[in-house]
């Protein structure tokens, strides 16, 4: 197994470009997925069964079907349906956001429901309305508990963004495959891609554990 460093040097600019797009895809999808997930999670917690039903179906669908299938559906189905033509980057962001929203929704719900019900009762007994009790008492505590599972979800999302390669979004894995296709080399492109993903996910988990520690001090 001899490594062709010259080929790697040639492809380095593409890997840099790909990495930047991977980071961009992940950041957009994490932000959109989290916001959308909070909304879905709230919907699922609605007392009224008729209101919570569509949110339940959403979560069941996106957790129960492969992300690859969802990406293809969005790329070849949803995006052309709305904009007339498709776009790999847009389709990847939409599919990743919709998928991670389902997981974030469950993390959000579990976080809130893990707070002892005495907290809500104490807040309400002091005259706070439901929104105030949520905002000042329940959510700050729930948020702390949501950080570790949310971190996991973000790491999964960074790795899953590699699936966007198959719809020709020119992210990291796309350039890895391109290099493999051009030179018939296996180790150089795929090990490089693996290493870059590792650096991305490892930095994120370092960042999150630091945040967690800082909140734990209080």
């Amino acid at each position: 197994m001899d490594i062709r460093w010259d080929l790697l040097a040639e492809y380095a600019p593409f890997f840099v470009k790909g990495t930047l797009l991977t980071i961009g895809l992940s950041v957009c999808s994490i932000l959109l997925g989290t916001i959308f997930g909070l909304f879905i999670g709230l919907g699922k917690m609605a007392q009224n069964k008729l209101i919570s039903l569509p949110f339940n179906i959403y979560i069941t669908f996106f957790r129960g079907t492969p992300l690859l299938v969802q990406i293809l559906l969005v790329h070849f189905g949803l995006v052309p349906l709305i904009w007339g033509e498709t776009n790999g980057i847009l389709a990847a962001i939409i599919a990743l956001s919709l998928n991670s929203a389902a997981y974030v929704a469950e993390i959000f719900r579990a976080g809130i429901q893990s707070i002892d019900k005495g907290q809500m009762e104490a807040a309400r007994s002091l005259g706070m309305n439901h929104v105030q009790a949520m905002r000042y008492v329940i959510l700050p505590q729930a948020f702390k508990r949501m950080i570790p599972p949310l971190g996991n979800e973000f790491i999964v999302l960074i790795k899953d963004s590699s699936l966007a390669a198959i719809i020709a979004a020119k992210e990291l894995m796309y350039w890895g495959q391109a290099m493999q296709g051009q030179y018939y080399r296996v180790w150089e492109p795929y090990l490089t891609a693996a290493l870059i993903y590792l650096v991305l996910t490892f930095s994120l988990s370092l960042l999150l554990s630091r945040l967690e520690r800082r909140l734990a001090v209080q």
């Binding site: 002892d116 005495g118 907290q119 009762e121 104490a122 807040a123 505590q141 702390k144």
Partner: peptide
């Protein structure tokens, strides 16, 4: 006032 106090721990 509750049996379990229910102070806000944060």
């Amino acid at each position: 006032v509750f049996q379990q106090f229910n102070l806000f721990p944060h």
